[in-house]
């Protein structure tokens, strides 16, 4: 379980990115984080694994105060939190397998990772993950030889290789076409459901968020301005999050959410 209390972040430039954010994510819950550019979505999830140092407040993961951990011990915290990135952030010149195994770096000593001699258990797990995301045939390809959707699958496998307690997902579909975006969102949600893995998903596509997650948190100017179900995203709420615009084109959620109805998703996800 993740608990965030009164989290604040002020950058050295004086920009106040986060202002008193309090949030609790229950085990197995997938939260969609929406908001305009600059609302603090990216900063918020980066504070959780301390890629960005929070300036106020507390974050607790499984009861441990992450915000109090000394820099020296950060790797031990970060390895418990998987992260999936907007532009995949794979190491382009490494093979698919090396990228997936890099998820184990927090667990193996330097010499093992340097010689690429990972424990057999890690290698088995990596093969299983590549099977799961449908990339078993591409193990030794270089990451930059893959398509966008395939790369994001490698990103997902890398995050899962950490055997995380929490998944942070930063705009997973921002560089993908609409169809691939849906497949990737579906895959992430299925996996979270399979493993009862809690996740925070930054997403700017409101329709996509409404379709796949059961709880939506809206940020505006570094504050939580909405926290509730996707159905509650009325025009008034969307205006509070994004400002005034024409929201009528936004489709109402059609009840295809993954953590709400995993069985239905597994049936439709067969083509992945």
């Amino acid at each position: 379980m993740l608990r965030i209390e009164a989290l604040g972040k002020t950058y050295r430039t004086g920009d106040r990115a986060l202002d008193g954010i309090s949030l609790t994510v229950a085990p197995g819950e997938v939260v969609g984080l929406i908001g305009p550019s600059g609302a603090g979505k990216s900063t918020l999830i980066r504070c959780i694994n301390r890629l960005v140092e929070p300036s106020a407040g507390e974050i607790l993961l499984g009861g441990e105060a992450i915000t109090a951990v000394a820099t020296r011990h950060l790797p031990a915290v970060r390895r418990r939190i998987g992260m999936i990135f907007q532009e995949y952030a794979l190491v382009e010149r490494l093979t698919v397998m090396e990228n997936v195994l890099s998820g184990r770096l927090g667990y193996v000593p330097f010499w093992r990772s340097f010689l690429r001699r990972f424990p057999q258990r890690d290698i088995d797990a990596a093969f299983a993950l590549l099977d799961r995301v449908g990339l078993a045939a591409h193990v030794d390809k270089r990451a930059d030889a893959l398509s966008g959707g395939q790369r994001q699958r490698v990103g997902i496998a890398r995050a899962l290789a950490q055997e995380p307690e929490l998944l942070l997902v930063d705009e997973p579909t921002a560089s993908l076409d609409p169809k691939t975006s849906q497949q990737i969102m579906q895959l992430i949600c299925e996996i979270c459901a399979e493993r009862a893995l809690p996740a925070i998903v930054n997403i700017h596509d409101v329709a996509l968020a409404q379709r796949f997650v059961s709880r939506i948190v809206g940020l505006h100017g570094g504050r939580v301005v909405y926290d509730g179900t996707p159905d509650g995203l009325s025009t008034t709420v969307l205006e509070r999050i994004y400002g005034v615009a024409d929201w009528s084109a936004l489709a109402q959620p059609d009840g295809e959410r993954c953590d709400a109805a995993p069985a239905a998703l597994l049936a439709t996800g067969a083509g992945l």
Binding site: N49, L51, L74, P75, A76, V77, R78, R79, R80, I81, M83, F85, E87, A89, L90, V91, E92, R93, L94, E98, S102, G103, R104, L105, G106, Y107, F110, S113, F114, G155, R158, Q162
Partner: peptide, 27 residues
């Protein structure tokens, strides 16, 4: 971003150097 991603896995400084930096500058 590649460095950030490797750091996010819990890699130590030498591992980040090996996986994220060396891989990029070696050629």
């Amino acid at each position: 971003t590649q460095v950030e991603a490797i750091r996010a896995t819990g890699a130590g400084w030498w591992q980040v150097l090996d996986y994220a930096v060396r891989a990029q500058v070696m050629p």
